Amino acid sequence: MTIVGVLSETPGRERRVALTPDAVGRLRSRQVRVVIESGAGRRAWFGDADFEAAGAEVKTRAQVYEESDILLCVHPPDDVAALAGGRVLIGLLDPLSHPGRAAGLAAAGITALSLDLLPRTLSRAQAMDALTSQANVAGYKAALLAAEAYGGFFPMLVTAAGTSRPAQVLVLGAGVAGLQAIATARRLGALVTGYDVRAAAQADIASLGAGVLATLNDDRSQEDGYAAALTGDESDAQQRALQDAIPRFDVVITTAKVPGAQAPLLVTETAIEKMRPGSVVIDMAVGNVAGSVADTRLVTDGGVTVIGAPDLAATVPVAASTAYARNAVALLTHLMPDGVFTLEPADEVRAGVLVSHGGQVVHPRLPKEIRS
């Protein structure tokens, strides 16, 4: 019987857990044994008793490492070297940003699969798409965080004391996180405008009832659905156009990330200086906004609040953990059709997520120098 293990995530801002009691029940129904570190779900409000009731066995950390055939995580644990060679690690490993991590896993003989590499254009992989599920949660929380930090109302309110105008919100980047931020800000009553260089994303913005801010006339979409990198001249033109537009808004939320690369600068220092006192800027990519710092709220001399918020999904741990666990179970179900973990060489999902196997780094998007 295959044994799936779950550890507590590294203490700090991470509150998610890789499996929830509901997900444990789904694995148990497939004759998979689940062992979980005591307290692993505590920060997401899932107690040991909840896991035991679902059929999991609560163990010490050392026991989870010793007994697991497959270890599920959100982020790779700091002590992952304790996982014996020949075992499997599945999580958001982010090997494109940390190729040395991939090399270390390969050297330890660990078969590593990274959910953030999942081919998002495969329709049959949608249930496994953890990036999408977590971005959805993060975009929702970004709008709430902006509303909390903003000194006025998001909706227009008509009261006996007078009428307050609705907040003007600009969302830069209309991927999953951006579209959810747009939808949530609109539900809160704000007047929302979205921006993206991809034509399909502009149509998505309009479909939500938001305005579309256009700065470049040509579509900048790639086959994988991500935005193509702009040339130097295009980037300069984009920044100038945004610099003129941004001061009209009370709240700006930026979501433009580039897998394995530096996030593009969208909100310059000059744009921030032109914003009204009391305005709010949320940088979900921590790199889209000049001067933003991860997990830090700064107030400029001009009274603009700049918040670096790269891990907002972790601040909604129940919803985020539930969605992530469903993604992980969907992947396991795909890789364990008969209850036994297998790697089918011709499988597109397997090829997309496999980082290391047999002591080698095997993913083609990783640097050649660490691949054998």
Rank of each mutant, 00 (worst) to 15 (best):
T2M: 09
S8V: 06
T10Y: 07
G12A: 07
V17M: 00
A18M: 01
L19I: 01
A23D: 00
A23H: 04
R28M: 05
E37H: 12
E37Y: 06
S38G: 15
G39T: 05
A40I: 07
R42F: 06
G47A: 15
A56R: 07
E57K: 00
A62G: 14
Y65A: 08
I70L: 06
L71N: 13
L72S: 08
C73V: 15
H75M: 10
P77L: 02
V80G: 01
V80W: 12
R87I: 08
L89H: 07
I90P: 05
L93V: 05
P95W: 02
L96D: 13
L96H: 04
H98K: 13
G100N: 14
A102R: 09
G104T: 13
A106E: 09
L113F: 10
D116A: 04
L117W: 02
L118I: 11
R120L: 11
L122Y: 11
S123I: 10
R124L: 06
R124C: 09
Q126V: 00
A127L: 00
M128Q: 02
A130W: 04
T132G: 15
A135Y: 03
A138D: 10
G139E: 02
G139A: 03
A146T: 07
A149Y: 09
G152V: 04
Q168D: 14
L172T: 11
A174N: 10
A174L: 00
A177D: 11
G178H: 10
L179V: 09
Q180G: 10
G189I: 08
G194E: 10
G194Q: 08
G194A: 09
Y195I: 02
R198P: 13
A200F: 07
Q202H: 04
I205K: 03
G209F: 00
A210H: 02
L213W: 05
L213V: 05
T215W: 03
L216K: 05
N217P: 15
S221D: 08
T231C: 12
E234A: 09
D236H: 12
A237R: 15
A237Y: 07
Q238V: 03
Q238S: 04
Q243L: 04
R248Q: 15
V258F: 05
P259Q: 06
G260E: 06
Q262K: 13
E269L: 05
I272H: 09
R276D: 10
G278F: 07
S279E: 07
S279W: 09
A290L: 12
V293M: 12
V293W: 00
T296N: 04
L298M: 12
L298T: 15
T300A: 05
V304A: 12
P310D: 03
A314I: 01
A319W: 01
T322G: 08
A325F: 02
R326Y: 04
V329M: 05
T333E: 13
D338H: 12
G339Q: 06
V349D: 09
R350F: 03
G352Y: 02
G352S: 11
S356R: 11
G359V: 08
Q360P: 10
L366K: 01
K368F: 10
K368Y: 08
R371W: 07
